[in-house]
Design a protein around this nucleic acid. Structure first.
Length: 581
DNA sequence: AGTCCTCACCGG
DNA sequence: AACTCCGGTGAGGACT
C-alpha cells in the first residue's frame, strides 16, 4: 500500500505529522511527536514523505542513519510548477506559495549562503522566516496537486516533481557519503606535475621555471598569469593576439608559446586542485562537495565548492576505493543524440538509437559515408546551435537524413528567439529570458514586465509584443532581425530541450539506481550529467553493473514512454577513477 | 574592506 | 575543425 505522510519540523526537535489519503488530502488529524527522527524511523511503512524542504529535514535524518524511500519536496515542486506556468522569477518558498494562494504579500526568497569547506550541513536557510505550520503546508501541497493537473502533460509533470525530489534525496546521501579520496596520491600527483612547493605559498618550482622560460623568450619579465601582460609582450614582439586562450596561442609561432601553454595548464591545477584545495576539501579520506540537484535551469546538477564537476583527468588518480572495495564508473554512451531521438521521434534517428552500438558511427554510416568525426560534429552542432564551420556544412546532410530531429531543435530555437516558453520532455520549463545577458536585460528587451522584488504585482505573464527598452547599453539590436541576445536565447533554447530532457532521464536513472542499492552496501558517491560512480565491496561490483544497465532502461521507459531508443552505458570496475576509460 | 566584473581553464 | 551549449572556480583589477 502506498503510504504517504506529511511532516513539518518544530522548533524543539519535534515534528507535526499527518497521514495523507490517495487524493493527497489529510486522512487523519495532525499529531505532534517529540522527536522528528524517531517519528520517521518508527514509520517504515511510509513510502513517501511530503515536506517543505529536503535540505531542512533530510540531513538530520541521515545524521541518525535514517533513510526514507521517497519524498515530495514542496519548495522544489513550487519552482518547477512556477516555471511551467511562466512565472519563473516569483519566490518559490512555501510561504510565498501560501501567500499567492491566500492573497497575502509574497515574502522574497532568502539569499542562499555559499558552501564552506568542511561544513557538514550546508545551505540552511534562516529557519524561522521560512517555516510554515503543517496545516499551511498541506494547503500548498493540495494546491500543487491541482496545478499538476493543469499542466500540458500532468503525468509527466508529476513524474518530474517526483524525480527531482528523488534527486534531492540522492544528493543529500551523496553529500553525506563523500567521494573516496587519497590525499597521499593527490600529493604525489601534484609533486610530479608541479615540483616541490616553496615556503610562503608562492609558485611551486615547475611553475617558476616555466615563468622564467616565458620571460627569457620575450627578453623581459612577463607574468604569464596576467593576460594583459602576455598580450602586450606579444605585441612588442610584433605578434598580434586578441586573447591568450590556448587555442589562439597554439597557432602562434614564437618560443614563448610552448612554456606559456604548459604554464597555463599547470597553473590551473595549482590554483583549482592544488595543496590548498586538498586541505580545504578532503577530510578523513573523502572529498565532500555539496551536490545540488536541479541547480541549473536545464535541470543539470551543480556542485557548490570544490569544483566537483570539473575534476581534471590527471587528478582523478586520487579517487581511490577503500581496501576491498571498488568503484563502478558508468558513463552513458552518446546520451544527447539518443535523447534527441526519443523526444523528436525522428524515425531514422530512433532506428540508429535503437541499437547499443556507437551511435555516431551509425549516423555517419547513414548520412556521412562512414566519417564518424564528421557525424559527431554535425550532431553536436545541431544541438548546440553552431553558426559556422564544418558543423554547419554537415548540418544539411543531417537535415536530409533526420528531418524531424533537426526540426525539433530548430523549433525550440525559434521559440526561444521569440520569447516563448520551451519545455523538456517531462515539463521543466526554460525561462523566456535565459541564455543571454542578465534576466532583467533580456526580459526588458522582450517587453516582459519583471516581477517586483517585494509584495505586489500579480501579472508577470509574457507579453512579447513591443521591443520596449532596447536602447540599453547591451546593444546589438538591429531592426528587422533577431538581436544577438535573441539569437543567443535561441541557441540556449535549442540546447535546453535536449540537455534538459537528458537531465530528466538522468534523474530517473539515479532514482532507480538508488533503489537498487538499498539492499546492498553499495553507495552512490558521484554524479556528473551522464556519468555515475558507485562505491561498493568488490563482491557487489557485478550486481551494481547490472543494476546500472537495468536502471538506465527503466529510466528510458519511464521518461519517454514506449520508445525503441536504448540507453547503453560503458561501465568499468576499478580501484582508481583514472583507470576507467 | 567589500563587491562585481573579466579572463581563462576545467568538466560534461 | 573550430571555438558553437552549460556551469564552477580563482586571481586580478576596477569600482564603491
Amino acid at each position: 500500500m502506498a503510504d504517504r505522510w506529511a511532516l513539518a519540523p518544530a522548533e524543539d526537535g519535534g515534528a507535526d505529522l499527518a497521514p495523507l489519503g490517495p487524493d493527497g488530502l489529510p486522512a487523519g488529524p495532525v499529531r505532534r511527536e517529540r522527536d522528528l527522527v524517531t517519528a520517521v524511523r518508527d514509520r517504515p511503512e511510509v513510502t513517501r514523505w511530503v515536506w517543505r524542504s529536503t535540505a531542512e529535514v533530510y540531513p538530520r535524518l541521515l545524521d541518525a542513519e535514517v533513510r526514507v524511500e521517497r519524498c515530495y519536496d514542496i519548495e522544489d515542486a513550487e519552482t518547477l510548477l512556477l516555471g511551467h506556468e511562466g512565472r519563473h522569477g516569483r519566490p518559490h518558498s512555501a510561504a510565498a506559495a501560501l501567500a499567492r494562494l491566500r492573497g497575502g504579500a509574497e515574502p522574497p526568497d532568502p539569499p542562499q549562503r555559499a558552501a564552506e569547506p568542511g561544513a557538514q550541513s550546508p545551505l540552511f536557510e534562516p529557519r524561522d522566516s521560512v517555516r510554515l505550520p503543517l496545516e499551511d503546508l498541506l494547503a500548498v501541497y493540495a494546491d500543487q496537486q491541482r496545478r499538476h493537473e493543469a499542466t500540458a502533460h500532468p503525468g509527466r509533470m508529476r513524474l518530474l516533481t517526483a524525480a527531482e525530489s528523488a534527486g534531492m534525496l540522492v544528493a543529500a546521501e551523496m553529500n553525506r557519503a563523500g567521494l573516496p579520496w587519497s590525499a597521499p596520491v593527490h600529493r604525489e600527483v601534484l609533486r610530479e606535475l608541479l615540483g616541490e612547493r616553496y615556503a610562503g605559498g608562492g609558485e611551486p618550482r615547475r611553475l617558476a621555471e616555466l615563468a622564467d622560460e616565458v620571460s627569457a623568450a620575450f627578453g623581459r619579465r612577463v607574468r604569464p598569469d596576467l593576460p594583459a601582460d602576455v598580450i602586450k609582450a606579444f605585441a612588442q614582439a610584433g605578434i598580434k593576439v586578441r586573447s591568450t586562450r590556448r587555442w589562439e596561442l597554439a597557432s602562434v609561432d614564437h618560443p614563448a608559446v610552448k612554456p606559456l601553454i604548459e604554464y597555463k595548464k599547470l597553473y590551473r591545477i595549482w590554483v583549482a586542485h592544488g595543496w590548498t584545495w586538498l586541505q580545504d576539501w578532503v577530510r578523513d579520506g573523502r572529498f565532500r562537495p555539496e551536490f545540488l540537484a536541479g541547480g541549473t535551469v536545464t535541470g543539470r546538477w551543480v556542485t557548490n565548492g570544490g569544483g566537483a564537476l570539473q575534476i581534471p583527468k590527471v587528478i582523478r588518480r586520487a579517487v581511490v576505493a577503500d581496501p576491498g572495495w571498488r568503484l563502478v564508473v558508468a558513463d552513458a554512451d552518446q546520451m544527447e543524440p539518443r535523447v534527441l531521438a526519443a523526444i523528436s521521434r525522428d524515425p531514422g534517428l530512433m532506428e540508429v538509437a535503437g541499437r547499443e552500438t556507437d551511435l555516431y558511427q551509425s549516423v555517419s554510416d547513414h548520412a556521412f559515408s562512414g566519417d564518424r568525426a564528421q557525424a559527431k560534429i554535425a550532431v553536436l552542432g545541431a544541438v548546440y546551435g553552431q553558426t559556422s564551420g564544418d558543423g554547419l556544412k554537415n548540418l544539411a546532410a543531417l537535415r536530409r537524413r533526420f528531418p524531424a530531429a533537426v526540426a525539433y531543435v530548430d523549433d525550440a530555437a525559434r521559440a526561444g528567439e521569440e520569447g516563448r516558453l520551451v519545455r523538456t520532455w517531462l515539463g521543466r520549463t526554460c525561462p523566456p529570458a535565459a541564455g543571454a545577458g542578465t534576466a532583467e536585460d533580456a526580459a526588458e528587451e522582450a517587453g516582459i514586465p519583471q516581477a517586483p522584488g517585494g509584495p505586489g504585482g500579480d501579472d508577470a505573464t509574457g507579453d512579447p509584443d513591443g521591443a520596449g527598452g532596447s536602447g540599453g547599453p547591451g546593444g546589438g539590436w538591429l531592426p528587422g532581425h533577431a538581436s544577438s541576445d535573441a539569437r543567443a536565447r535561441g541557441r540556449f533554447a535549442r540546447n535546453f530541450v535536449v540537455q534538459g530532457s537528458a537531465a530528466d532521464w538522468a534523474l530517473l536513472l539515479l532514482a532507480a539506481l538508488r533503489r537498487a542499492c538499498v539492499p546492498l552496501a553499495a553507495e552512490l558517491v558521484f554524479f556528473q550529467h551522464d556519468e555515475v560512480i558507485v562505491h561498493c565491496p568488490e563482491e557487489e561490483a557485478e550486481t551494481v553493473v547490472a543494476a546500472i544497465r537495468e536502471a538506465a532502461e527503466l529510466a528510458g521507459r519511464l521518461t519517454f514512454g514506449a520508445t525503441p531508443v536504448r540507453f547503453p552505458f560503458t561501465t568499468a570496475v576499478v580501484e582508481c577513477y583514472a583507470d576507467a576509460k
